[in-house]
Simulated scan of single mutants.
Amino acid sequence: MTVRTGAPAAPLTPRAALRWPLIKRAVRRAQPGTIVEIGCGQGAMGARLVGLTREYVAVEPDPTSYRVACERIEPRGGTVVNGLTDDLPAGRTYDMACAFEVLEHLEDDAGALRDWAPRIRPGGHLVLSVPAWQHMFGPWDKAVGHYRRYSPDDLAGTLRDNGFEPVDISLYGWPLAFALEAIRNRVADGSPIQEESAPEQTAHSGRWLQPSKRISDVGITVGILPFQALQRIVPKKGNGIVAVARRV
């Protein structure tokens, strides 16, 4: 696969920018030759992952987000499929699967992990992110179709019970993500999206409050740097989790 590294990457949200260093570190340590991203949304993270592997494939069920993801990922050499993991070639496995802000949207999270495991070669890795701490479940979670949030121990147990051995489970986001969450809860409280069905909310979540312009990327990248440094200093505080697990 030829990667067009000159193609501009899509802007990350501030929260995604906070978790990106943890994700990048996990991918570089594992050095996967092939990656599948499950639920790539509008492709902002995928546009970065393409440059860290030989072959990158993503699946995205929402047609609107899929079209944006194609525009962002495919010029860089990746492939995006409008569908689910079942729509990938039968029997195909990957060195790594990634699922960012996906698991909390699935009513049967254990079943999803069992479904994902056969897509990863034995000994390969799963990298995922989820919101942390059920006591923080608020208007934003409800509006975007979350079923739950996780503690590090809860997530580790769910992974162990469904085909994976946790390698690293890290909190991220202190202190900025707490302020961002308060803002998101205020925006979501009373929003019409609260009245949508869970599948509609999930589809909407990949598009809501997403930056779209290159200038946004520059501003977020520069502005987030001191907060990326702060969260490294306080690694045991945060309202988000990035987890790395190995397929048993």
Rank of each mutant, 00 (worst) to 15 (best):
T2R: 11
T2W: 02
P8A: 06
T13Q: 12
R15G: 04
R15V: 14
A17K: 11
R19Y: 09
I23W: 03
R29Y: 02
P32M: 03
V36S: 05
G41Y: 02
Q42D: 10
A47R: 11
L49K: 04
L49S: 13
V50T: 12
T53Q: 02
E60D: 07
P61L: 01
V68N: 10
V68Q: 14
C70I: 12
R72N: 11
R72Q: 11
T79V: 15
T79R: 15
V81P: 10
G83Q: 10
D87W: 04
L88S: 05
R92T: 15
T93K: 03
A97S: 12
A97Y: 05
A99C: 04
E101P: 04
V102W: 03
V102P: 09
L106K: 10
A110R: 02
A112K: 09
R114H: 07
A117V: 15
P118Y: 02
P118A: 01
R119S: 04
I120D: 10
H125I: 04
S129F: 01
W140I: 00
W140P: 03
A143T: 09
V144I: 15
G145N: 08
P152I: 06
P152Q: 11
D153W: 08
L155G: 05
A156N: 05
D161C: 13
N162K: 06
E165G: 14
E165P: 14
E165H: 15
I169C: 06
S170K: 08
Y172P: 15
P175V: 14
L176T: 15
F178P: 12
L180G: 09
L180S: 02
A182R: 14
N185S: 09
R186C: 03
E195L: 12
Q201G: 12
A203V: 04
H204Y: 14
H204M: 13
S205T: 04
L209R: 07
L209Q: 06
Q210M: 10
Q210C: 07
P211F: 07
S216A: 13
S216M: 10
T221D: 07
I224E: 13
I224N: 11
P226H: 05
Q228W: 03
P235T: 06
K237N: 06
G238N: 11
V244H: 07
V244K: 09
